[in-house]
């Protein structure tokens, strides 16, 4: 009786979640009339706009990750070490991007950093790229901060720091050689998640007019029939890959002996 109910719920879930995946895969293979083919994929991969925008987004993602790690790791470390009273407030702030819609934030950017403002970031392509990267870092902040903070919780920050200091290490050395390696798995998890978020992001890139992968997908979707489905399959593959990598590194951590 109870089992029937449980299987029912699970079956519903499986149906609901596989049908769209089947649907998009099926559609992506039907470009050629009457038979299944990879034509849509060939079209997509052969499109120079695809290559450009994808490269652009990957580059953005990598820079966002580097910036995010440089920003979050020292901050989370410092707060655990010296300012624990501040933790709840910082945590609250890092959760704000989950509550304030991205479209509102980017709207603020456009009005705050336009050509006539004190920091005219949107005046040049380079400046806009930087601004977009900051925007992505903001979107990824809740995930990155949580991941790193959780990672730091498992190590004894104060003791490690004192030990390193007694050996004459400076702050940069401590962070790069002691703290970072110890929270590497957490940082990698945050990084892959950031990658997944940035690759498909649409709103910020579109409103800042940058040639990113998200707006490209949207444009293609408005004009083509089969290619969008192929793109959806590719995007799903990328998301799956990122999350799979997170699983992989956290499993690696569990099996590897903890570094002291």
């Amino acid at each position: 009786m109870k089992k029937i109910w449980a299987w029912g719920a699970l079956l519903f879930g499986i149906l609901y979640f596989t049908l769209p995946l089947v649907g998009m895969t099926n559609f992506s293979l039907k470009m050629r009339r009457g038979e299944y083919s990879f034509d849509a994929y060939a079209k997509v991969f052969g499109d120079p706009r695809f290559q450009e925008t994808f490269t652009y987004s990957v580059t953005q993602a990598l820079f966002t990750i580097v910036f995010g790690v440089l920003l979050v790791v020292p901050t989370a470390y410092w707060i655990r070490l010296k300012l624990p009273g501040l933790r709840p407030y910082v945590e609250f702030v890092t959760l704000l991007p989950l509550v304030i819609p991205a479209i509102v934030i980017v709207f603020g950017y456009i009005r705050l950093y336009n050509t006539s403002s004190w920091l005219p970031l949107t005046g040049s392509a380079f400046g806009t790229n930087i601004l977009l990267m900051f925007g992505y870092a903001t979107l990824a902040l809740p995930y990155m901060y949580r991941a790193v903070d959780t990672g730091l919780r498992t190590i004894d920050v104060a003791t490690l720091t004192e030990a390193a200091q007694s050996l004459g290490a400076g702050w940069a050395t401590i962070l790069a050689r002691i703290i970072l390696p110890n929270v590497l798995v957490a940082v990698l998890s945050g990084a892959f998640l950031t990658f997944a978020i940035v690759i498909g992001e649409f709103t910020m890139a579109a409103l800042l007019n940058r040639p990113a992968f998200g707006p490209y997908m949207q444009l293609l979707g408005a004009n083509r029939a089969y290619e969008p489905a192929a793109l959806a399959v590719i995007a799903f593959g990328i998301t799956w890959g990122c999350l799979g990598l997170i699983q992989l590194v956290s499993r690696f951590q569990k099996s590897a002996p903890p570094k002291a």
């Binding site: 649907g23 998009m24 559609f27 998640l193 998200g214 959806a232 799903f236 799956w240 990122c242 997170i246």
Partner: peptide
């Protein structure tokens, strides 16, 4: 974990291919 991050443009394509006028369902 994957599905909660599979949002945005590609998700819309997936549902168009499923429940849209010529979607599989």
């Amino acid at each position: 974990g994957v599905a909660s991050n599979f949002a945005g443009v590609p998700l819309a394509f997936a549902f168009l291919a499923t429940l849209g006028p010529v979607g599989i369902v």
